[in-house]
Amino acid sequence: MIKVNNVVKTFDGFTALDGLTMTAEKGSIYGLVGPNGAGKSTILRHIMGIYRPDSGSVLVDGEQVYENPAVKAKIAAIPDELYYFNSASTRDMMRFYRGMYPNFDMKRYEALAEAFPEVDEKQPIRRLSKGMQKQSAFRLALCCNPEVLVLDEPVDGLDPVMRRQVWTLLMGDVAQRGTTVLVSSHNLRELEDVCDHVGILSHGKVLLERSLTDLQDNVVKLQLAFADGELPELPKDLNVLHTSQIGRVYTLIVRGNPAEIKTRMAVCAPILMEALPLTLEEIFIYELGGEDYAVRDIVL
């Protein structure tokens, strides 16, 4: 389990993390989402043990990560910007990883050649395309058999077939080995398909942290039409995040239980009322709309 408690981190007077708190359960895929500059990469580097928090704690299985080789041996990572030794091939890096990670699985390394058949393991990684470099990175990271896998924009540069291949491998490790996967990505549609839990970051804090099911069950998109074409006065305690209109159809984004909201709205006598679940992307936009995020006036 990953537990981040009230972490603060500043760089030259700029507060990158401002009391960030989050928890990722063992054997789950936790998605970190947020606008650029929200602190996603910074907290990932704390969890990898690269940064020391100014205050607060970062624990993996109850132990501090920073300067703790035993804990770091359980963690593998694929950063957004890959870095390997100059002229090192995939096979060269395999030998390096095998010396660093006690659980490195050589049999799996050989078997995964079939999953990434286009990657020449003897070719210097820096000479490979971006997509091929990512495939090489996944092959190496998965063979470390980590308990925690930290991914920053992990499938950027991969084609759709290879993206599916990678996610299938990751979800297999979560199901079979109990691997905890922490992933930051701007591809919210993809995260929606794979994540158990989601944390929405803004200004160095976690605004919202819930299971994806709970998130979608707590916000609803209502499409409504009324006989006179006008939106009536709504119940005063209805938590409406956004209202828009196209023709005679009004769209309301409302926080709360969908069934209860429909019951409350029935008193307004709509001639049309349909409740639709929000996508993770829509939840992201409207939750950050409350934080004066730049896209708060988007009409969906």
Rank of each mutant, 00 (worst) to 15 (best):
A24Q: 01
G157E: 10
L182S: 06
T10F: 15
F14Y: 15
V249P: 01
R139H: 07
L44N: 08
V71T: 01
P154H: 02
L17S: 13
D92P: 14
L191Y: 02
S55P: 05
P270Y: 08
V155S: 06
V150I: 15
A294K: 07
R296K: 15
P160F: 06
N187R: 05
I47P: 05
T21K: 05
M48T: 02
L59C: 11
R189C: 03
I271N: 08
R95N: 15
L241S: 13
A70Y: 12
P258R: 08
K221V: 13
V181Q: 00
H46N: 01
R108F: 10
K130I: 12
N86M: 04
D61V: 03
L278S: 09
P79K: 02
G56K: 05
P160W: 04
R163V: 13
D61G: 08
A113S: 15
V8C: 05
Y250L: 09
N218V: 09
N86T: 08
L241M: 14
T180H: 07
K221C: 15
A111M: 04
S136M: 11
V194Q: 02
D292Y: 14
N68K: 14
F96V: 14
P79G: 09
A175K: 12
N257S: 07
D173N: 07
G199Q: 07
M22P: 00
A294H: 06
N6I: 04
T279W: 01
I43P: 00
D61L: 04
N5F: 14
N68M: 15
K26V: 06
N86F: 07
A294Y: 15
L191R: 00
